[in-house]
Every structure is written in structure tokens, then in C-alpha cells.
């Protein structure tokens, strides 16, 4: 089996990413601890979340070393979720609007 050699990387890479993930988690906890509010809070949460997710997928799950065909096959379909998020947000807005008119306490 020659694939074994394909995913053989220096331990140092994992340790560095591990440390980075710790720092990023601490940073996202700090967002809550120091009571950041509004757009600052939401953008910081999203940035730290995406950085952590990217590092886990790219390095820990070895995606950056996989063939490009596999990367596209796996990474593109979940982008559909962006469409679902848009549809959900539109629907939620509309429901909120109706509830505010007819049912608000």
C-alpha cells in the first residue's frame, strides 16, 4: 500500500495546528466573556469558527493533501447549505412579521 506514505506528515505540523485551535477557541470564548455585542460579536464568532473549521478539515482531516478531484467532490455539495440558510432566513423574517402583526404579546 503506497497511500500510507501520502499522508505521512511531520508531527510538528499537528502540534502547531493544535496550538492554533486552542488559541482560536480561547478567543471565541473571550468574545462571550468580555460581552462583545452586535456586529462585532457576530463577525468575531464567524471568523474564529471558520478558521477553526478550516484548520480541522485542511490539516487534521488531511484535505489539503488529497487529490483535487476529491476536494471538489466533498467541499462543493455542502455549499448548497448557503441556499438553505437564505431560504430559512427569508421564511423566518416573514413569520416574524406576521407574528408581530397578529400575535405579539
Amino acid at each position: 500500500m503506497d497511500h500510507a506514505a501520502d499522508q505521512q506528515h511531520p508531527i510538528g505540523v499537528y502540534l502547531k495546528i493544535w496550538a492554533l485551535l486552542f488559541v482560536l477557541s480561547a478567543a471565541s470564548y473571550a468574545v462571550d466573556y468580555f460581552h462583545f455585542e452586535g456586529y462585532l460579536r457576530w463577525s468575531l464568532i464567524l471568523i474564529f469558527m471558520l478558521l477553526k473549521a478550516g484548520l480541522i478539515v485542511a490539516v487534521f482531516m488531511h484535505m489539503m493533501w488529497e487529490p483535487i478531484a476529491l476536494i471538489y467532490t466533498i467541499m462543493i455539495p455542502p455549499l448548497l447549505l448557503v441556499v438553505f440558510i437564505g431560504i430559512g432566513a427569508l421564511e423566518a423574517d416573514y413569520t416574524f412579521f406576521l407574528r408581530s402583526i397578529f400575535f405579539a404579546p
Binding site: G88, E91, A92, F96, S100, F103, A104, P105
Partner: peptide, 9 residues
């Protein structure tokens, strides 16, 4: 997200 955004409470 949909439940949280559409809640008036």
C-alpha cells in the same frame, strides 16, 4: 436559526 429568528418572545 429559523425558530430563533421568527420568535417574538
Amino acid at each position: 436559526m429559523t425558530a430563533r429568528m421568527s420568535s417574538v418572545v
